[in-house]
Design a protein around this nucleic acid. Sequence first.
DNA 1: ACCATTATTCCGCTATGCGGAATAATATTC
DNA 2: GAATATTATTCCGCATAGCGGAATAATGGT
Lengths: 263, 263
Amino acid sequence: MRPRKERDEDDGQDRDFVTALARGLELLRAFGREGESLGNRDFAERTGMSKSTVSRLTYTLQKLEYLSYNPDTARYQLAPPVLSLGFSCLAGMPLRQLANPLMQAVAEATTLPVAMAGRDRLSMVYLDRCRGTNAVALNIEVGAHIKLATTAMGRAYLAAMDDDARAAAMEDIRQDEGANWPVVQRGIEGAVESYHARGFCTSIAEWRPDVAAVAVPFKPRDGSPMVAFNCGGSAQTLTRDHVENDLAPRLTDLVRRLAAIAP
Amino acid sequence: MRPRKERDEDDGQDRDFVTALARGLELLRAFGREGESLGNRDFAERTGMSKSTVSRLTYTLQKLEYLSYNPDTARYQLAPPVLSLGFSCLAGMPLRQLANPLMQAVAEATTLPVAMAGRDRLSMVYLDRCRGTNAVALNIEVGAHIKLATTAMGRAYLAAMDDDARAAAMEDIRQDEGANWPVVQRGIEGAVESYHARGFCTSIAEWRPDVAAVAVPFKPRDGSPMVAFNCGGSAQTLTRDHVENDLAPRLTDLVRRLAAIAP
DNA sequence: ACCATTATTCCGCTATGCGGAATAATATTC
DNA sequence: GAATATTATTCCGCATAGCGGAATAATGGT
């Protein structure tokens, strides 16, 4: 086969990029995690597309049953076929099956939840998780988002990116964070150093004041997307010492074992 | 606002239907539940689109990060953002939060798993589920599919559809089932009767020889998509009498209570 | 009854996206 | 190692799909 030539996007347009598809997907993304229903008006505002375009796209998506339409409120909502796609996505990650037992072992040994996540723009998305026997703590479901910029998970991911990809991501984060950026930036830079020096990243009372966590990235050799593993709990009960000298080694060990069995 | 005029799709084309979007989504759907990776060739075969079209669409989807590309194998795989969409879909279903406690109560009373599902083409997709304390039985995850045509869940859904929608669905099922159709058809017709007479549908050793289940549909008054609830387990331990006279009333009761608190 | 809001339709224009054929790169075979 | 088979991408002309502005409809509030 033939590797795709680098396209010149800067000046001219990308002749192979299908705009209509991108727009439609942007519409699906417009829903927040809080499960609001959206009207055509909302879509137009959130995405900056013209009313007519939105109308046509929602019409199409509804016909394909990705959106369900409520005639009473004139609002749309994401429909079950969207969920199916998400499930196929999970099914297509052999890493999950391989990593799960290792995660489970750490969760049991530490009594804390352990999770695996991948990136989605400025978030990390949970791909799998094991609950620790102990905690009521931090019960995040598969599919849920946590911040890329300030969580241990996100920092571990950032730390393991190529320099240029990380630079691009950090630029996006800067846009997003506004005034917080200096603090956030320091956190990320610290994480990069921590990762290179010790192989893990922490976030103790930085994402949320009551949460302490550690995370380690994993790059599959076969080129499938990078993931990260985390483990953590209440910042009240977990000392920095405990996080760095007990939890962190368990996660680095998890990743080492995984590297031995994963492609 | 203004209700959308009925389009004439039969003869001319639908001027408002965005083909490129539909095609791109069809590509995402092409992945089976078994988590294969697909190359452009596979997409072209499965969807019947031309090679060039597939190439452009996969390029676009990859750029949007819905597909991850493995340069070694030249195969694509669904990426985390797809999972995010699925999660937003769940978040947007208030019914889940309302129904969950009721489902939990039935699961505990019967020691059997109870689930809620919506439709996706010829499948029912699990939207939520509660495990019964008892069984190792039938542990299906959220997002998973079961057959529309032969499960209790699917039959309950079919039974509660409008006559014309059901007719359309049955036509699709007929296409899909081939030689089995006569048996399947009788099952569905029996389910429709059962639903009208008693308010529930069963499938005992019909979907799989070792599974017995009962299901009840629920139509939200606010126009959001219909769902169904099921409950079941091993056909060895569950008698028809038990299913119809113990489990079924619990589910119809669940739906009655839900109707009282849901929109 | 009127106005404000929200959606949809209409329609001309052009960029968009389509597909066939040519081209490249890689795997496979002998 | 040359030759062949496979799989992908690029090129490019053409038709048309889809875009957006303006007009039109329906609805709800006051």
